[in-house]
């Protein structure tokens, strides 16, 4: 795998867009000596919901975590290639990861609210990034964020109670509220519904749909139905390679690549 000659891979479909929000060119990711992502090229459009699907271990989560440099937290992980957020190279030395993550927020697989109050959870991003000056502004921001996640009516009377006391679905929506409170440009979601029951999943999916008016959303999912429901474009990963990117309807009805077809028809997976 450590060939000096760079492996290239041609993705099927339409990975490139006209005015993309994020651009990824020739991205490779290594865990120590093992290569996890091979030459991924893709554009992520403004205010679109793009879903990443593929069998377990195909690198979709790894790829997602490149987009806000969460992989930096893993010592042995190395990312090469060019990743742009609008015109900025996010792996440039001059980029401050903290600022980047304020622009590219993230929601994780397991709901992970801080062991603090509901209020503090949503306020945290605003506090560390200095988004508000007064308590009134902060209160407003929190109400707005919780409203957008449809959580306000459920929690407005118990903002000071521990967030860990909420149900799983509420916790996940709180995590989304926490992410959007910072007003990021892109939200990365790493299997946000895999720990939730079907009803909570439906609520979160609806929320994703509403949020797509204002945010660019990249969602990694195990569920093809979910990808079909929430996203406008779908990217299929297989063994670290980006096999195909196309409009969601096209991927699920008329895939271009053999592997994509095998996956959506259940022969791989």
């Amino acid at each position: 795998m450590l060939d000096t000659a760079k492996e290239t891979y041609q993705t099927a479909g339409e990975p490139f867009l006209d005015e993309p929000k994020m651009r990824v060119r020739n991205a490779d990711v290594f865990y120590a000596d093992k290569q996890a992502i091979f030459d991924v090229n893709i554009d992520i459009g403004k205010n679109e919901v793009i879903s990443m699907i593929g069998p377990s271990g195909c690198g979709k989560s790894t790829f997602l975590r490149c987009l806000n440099r969460m992989n930096d937290t893993i010592d042995i992980c190395r990312v090469t290639g060019e990743l742009f957020l609008e015109d900025q190279d996010i792996y440039d030395r001059s980029i401050d990861v903290v600022e980047l993550r304020a622009r590219v927020g993230m929601v994780f697989q397991k709901p992970n609210p801080f062991p603090k109050s509901i209020y503090e959870n949503v306020a945290y991003g605003a506090r560390i990034h200095g988004l508000t000056d007064t308590k009134v502004e902060l209160d407003e921001l929190i109400e707005k964020s919780l409203h957008r996640c449809g959580l306000w009516n459920e929690v407005k009377d118990r903002l000071e109670e521990p967030a860990t006391g909420l149900s799983g679905g509420q916790q996940q929506r709180l995590c989304i509220a926490r992410a959007i409170a910072v007003n990021p440009e892109v939200i990365l979601m790493d299997e946000p519904c895999s720990a939730l029951d079907p009803i909570a999943t439906a609520t979160v999916e609806e929320l994703i749909h509403e949020l797509s008016e204002n945010f660019t959303i990249c969602i990694v999912t195990h569920s093809m139905q979910q990808a079909a429901r929430v996203s406008s474009r779908t990217a299929y990963f297989h063994l670290g390679k980006l096999i195909e990117v196309n409009d969601t309807s096209k991927v699920f009805t008329n895939p271009e690549h053999q592997l994509t077809e095998e996956y959506i028809t259940g022969r791989i997976g």
């Binding site: 903290v98 600022e99 945290y124 991003g125 560390i128 992410a179 910072v182």
Partner: peptide, 9 residues
């Protein structure tokens, strides 16, 4: 992860 993902240093 949650804190880092929020942009905390």
């Amino acid at each position: 992860e949650a804190a880092l993902g929020m942009g905390a240093s």
